[in-house]
Design a protein around this nucleic acid. Structure first.
Length: 423
RNA sequence: GGUGAGAUGGGUGAGUGGCUGAAACCAGCAGUUUGCUAAACUGCCGUACGGGUAACCGUACCGGGGGUUCGAAUCCCCCUCUCACCGCCA
């Protein structure tokens, strides 16, 4: 959620910024500001009435104590009218507040200056390309064929046990999965991120904290009996660790990581690009999360990009880095870099990581703050990124490292897998 | 699942209708004293919103929501959560 103080101070800047998303914020912001004006007026009025009530109540207390019942009762009668006015104003104020909140929830984050205006993924900027291109002297198989050829992943069995989008990894396929998780976690730890194993279900408050609720409710699996949600990403439990926290000084930089399975309903995305590992209801991911002083956010984002690039280079995959345009940048994000690897047999770019800075958009909802040098509380900045999401990495590894009679394992991974080829 | 207890400021913990935004202690911050360390002493020490250039003033908040009352941390109702014991169980 944006900060209303910013809207009051500089609405034009927000409106201009959101134009890069092709989002017409003017009508919403106009309504917010006029509602806010009215709210403040009513609020001031209410407070002055409350102050009068408090004063009279205090006097009544003293009168009773003195045994002056007559005067006390006289004072009581004075409160009747005030009380009525008070409850009326209270309900006005509540209504206006709810309206403002509801409008504020509709505004996406303002894109960073570096973000280009644009409507869809076609306007994204490719800021970097790297990694080795794979050429084949034979006709390469897509990963789903490789998975069954070498008995690594059983999609049909997953359908039997659970449903589509819940594959079962077997043998070396399972081992590869475990190796990647361990490898990603080790690299994150080396980069200074403290490992966490969070719960895989979260409560409603956490869902609101990171912004999955109320908008993206349909994306999460909901355990209605206990009102818990299966996490769509480790971002949710990891970031919510710092919900309602005030860090004691401005000297901080929090870096945490965690592996979790991620659960996504992917409602409405059936049919396209869902073959094999491309889109699943359950998948594994290692996430990195940072909580930073606003002055350090740009640097932190660069470090995260460097980190993810390092992983892809280590794995020897062809990749490209995109800076998303306004329209393609997620609702809560101020700037996002997507990482895509080239899946050589599908001949398709697959998104394997998304690294974003949210500035105060999340921390405003989370009430995540720090004490600045003036001893005032100030919102922290949050960032997060995948490092990395497994299934598409596995898809690319299988496809890009296939030979006619087996699949090679990148050197960086071999000490984790314990084998150097699958055949 | 059953029974019981509880939820107060960073922590411990007092407080059962008014002078309590909240005692006391601990932690923390600033200072005084002191050869250093330690100790002692003094002051400060919640958050949000509104008003004000500011000092400051006002309002709200004692798990959440509603009610009684001139007045609620304190009484009543509902909900959530936590702890303990029992049952079941990895």
């Amino acid at each position: 959620m944006l900060e209303i103080q910013e809207l009051r101070k500089n609405p034009e800047k927000v409106i201009d910024g959101l134009k890069k998303r092709h989002f017409d914020a003017k009508p919403i912001i106009d309504e917010i500001l006029s509602t806010d004006e009215l709210w403040r007026q009513k609020k001031t009025e209410l407070e002055s009435i409350s102050a009068q009530m408090n004063q009279i109540s205090k006097e009544i207390g003293i009168l009773f104590k003195q045994g002056n019942t007559e005067e006390a009762n006289k004072a009581k009668s004075k409160t009747v009218e005030l009380k009525e006015k008070e409850s009326e104003l209270k309900s006005d104020v509540d209504t206006l507040e709810a309206k403002i909140t509801q409008l504020m929830y509709q505004l996406p984050n303002v894109p960073n200056d570096m973000v280009r205006a644009g409507k869809s993924e076609e306007d994204n900027e490719i800021v970097e390309e790297g990694g080795p291109k794979r050429e084949f002297s034979f006709s390469p198989l897509p990963h789903w064929d490789l998975a069954s050829k070498y008995d690594l992943i059983d999609f049909e069995l997953g359908v039997k046990i659970t449903g589509a989008g819940f594959p079962i990894y077997k043998g070396k396929g399972a081992k590869l999965q475990r190796a990647l998780i361990a490898y990603f976690l080790d690299k994150a730890e080396q980069a200074g991120y403290q490992e966490h194993i969070p719960p895989h279900m979260v409560n409603e408050a956490s869902g609101y904290g990171t912004g999955q609720l109320p908008d993206k409710e349909g994306q999460m699996y909901h355990v209605t009996e206990d009102n818990l949600y299966l996490i769509p990403t480790a971002e949710v439990p990891l970031t919510n660790i710092y919900r309602d926290v005030i860090l004691p000084s401005e000297d901080f930089s929090i870096k945490i990581t965690g592996y979790t399975p991620c659960f996504r309903r992917e409602a409405g995305s059936y049919g396209k690009d869902v073959r094999g590992l491309n889109r699943l209801h359950q998948f594994d991911k290692v996430e990195i999360v940072r909580i930073e002083h606003p002055n350090n956010t740009a640097k932190a984002l660069d470090e995260m990009v460097d980190h993810v690039r390092g992983l892809l280079n280590d794995l020897g995959l062809e990749y490209r880095i995109l800076r998303l345009c306004g329209g393609d940048t997620g609702f809560a994000s101020a700037m996002t870099y997507d990482f895509e690897v080239f899946s050589a047999a599908q001949e398709k770019w697959l998104e394997v990581s998304s690294v974003s800075r949210f500035d105060t958009f999340q921390s405003n909802r989370l009430k995540l703050r720090f004490k600045n040098a003036d001893k005032k509380t100030q919102l922290c900045h949050t960032l997060n990124g995948s490092a990395l999401a497994l299934p598409r990495i596995v898809a690319a590894l299988l496809e890009n490292y296939q030979t006619e009679d087996g699949i090679l394992i990148p050197v960086a991974l071999q000490k984790y897998t314990g084998f150097d080829r699958i055949d």
